[in-house]
């Protein structure tokens, strides 16, 4: 065993990177669920965003345009879900699962011919003074811009939900769509906007995998990250602040697992490999056990709304 080989600074820096894709996907899904819609298609939207972003980046040579393409791709796919569930009133759970399957297939199709292609690399931010700080510099200030964008989106969502009128409307729609409708708010329109935002965020998360973390296109590149994002939303009990904790916890364990192996810590590999999932399950159980007084879930979550009812 040689724990000294693990540098805590580099480990924490790797954690920031590992957490970013699930953080992005989860914050989008959080907004969707706060609006009362359960979209289980996160994995499908992520992988569609991953390939859309990759194609755009390769075609234009600009990774930033790639992320724009990813957000548009994810949003487009999510609007398909929106039309089906909000206007045609299909079952949200079934439609969301179908969206995942569809998204994975669509991404494979789009990705034909992009396997093994190298994408333009995303520049790392180098802030003159801050990046050179001991400890904090490498951990916080030497990442690519998407890491900060992810955190900024979380902060913006927190402010929007808590302090803005729009956020209040969105929460009202999610808690009780009948009441929100009676007050004169357009439930369906609010929900469509939330769904599109969720899709765009999931797309960004997927593109972070295909453009920064891996970085290349291969089928199945998201490898279940979308499902983890869904779990983190529940883990966070639909609050942006806790969402960050959840994403870092999960990303951290993945990174730590590989680092411990490289440092030859005598823990069975299988235990390390399954540890992220165990921690997620334990956290979910602990959370639901602590909340004795009902669920923290939005009141109208997963229910279809029709104005004529």
């Amino acid at each position: 065993m040689d724990l000294s080989a693990i540098s805590p600074v580099l480990l924490l820096a790797a954690l920031m990177v590992a957490a970013t894709p699930i953080l992005l996907a989860a914050i989008g899904e959080l907004v969707v669920e706060r609006a009362g819609v359960l979209n289980l298609g996160v994995e499908g939207m992520m992988i569609t965003g991953a390939i859309c972003g990759f194609i755009t980046a390769v075609a234009t040579g600009s990774p930033m345009l790639g992320f724009v393409g990813a957000a548009l791709g994810g949003a487009a796919l999510s609007l398909l879900f929106g039309v089906l569930t909000q206007y045609l009133l299909s079952n949200q759970v079934a439609t969301g699962l179908a969206l995942t399957l569809f998204g994975i297939g669509l991404a494979s199709l789009l990705g034909q011919g992009y396997v093994g292609v190298r994408a333009p690399s995303v520049p790392k931010l180098d802030i003159p003074v801050l990046s050179d700080l001991p400890w904090l510099g490498p951990i916080l200030f030497r990442h690519d811009i998407i890491v900060y964008l992810g955190l900024a989106i979380v902060a913006a969502v927190w402010w929007f939900l808590r302090h803005s009128r729009g956020g209040l409307v969105l929460r009202a729609v999610g808690e009780n769509h009948e009441a929100a409708h009676a007050l004169g708010y357009h439930v369906t329109r609010v929900r469509m906007a939330a769904i599109a935002f969720g899709g765009a965020c999931a797309g960004l998360g997927g593109a972070y995998l295909s453009l920064v973390r891996v970085p290349q296109w291969t089928e199945g590149v998201t490898a279940g990250a979308g499902w983890i994002a869904l779990a983190i939303v529940v883990f966070a009990s639909w609050r942006p602040g806790r969402l960050v904790v959840g994403a870092f916890l999960f990303g951290g364990i993945t990174v730590l697992q590989l680092n411990l192996q490289a440092a030859r810590v005598q823990i069975p590999v299988e235990v390390l490999s399954m540890s992220p999932y165990i921690v997620t399950i334990v956290a979910l159980v602990a959370l639901s056990a602590r909340k004795g007084r009902g669920s923290a879930a939005p009141g109208s979550l997963g229910q279809s709304f029709h104005a004529a009812r």
């Binding site: 693990i6 580099l10 995998l209 891996v214 970085p215 590149v221 993945t254 590989l258 490289a262």
Partner: peptide, 18 residues
């Protein structure tokens, strides 16, 4: 074959001086 995991494994090694 798991590109994300292989990339993370390579990064963990590099961070430890490989």
């Amino acid at each position: 074959f798991d590109p994300a995991k292989e990339a993370d494994a390579a990064k963990a090694m590099i961070e430890q001086g490989v």
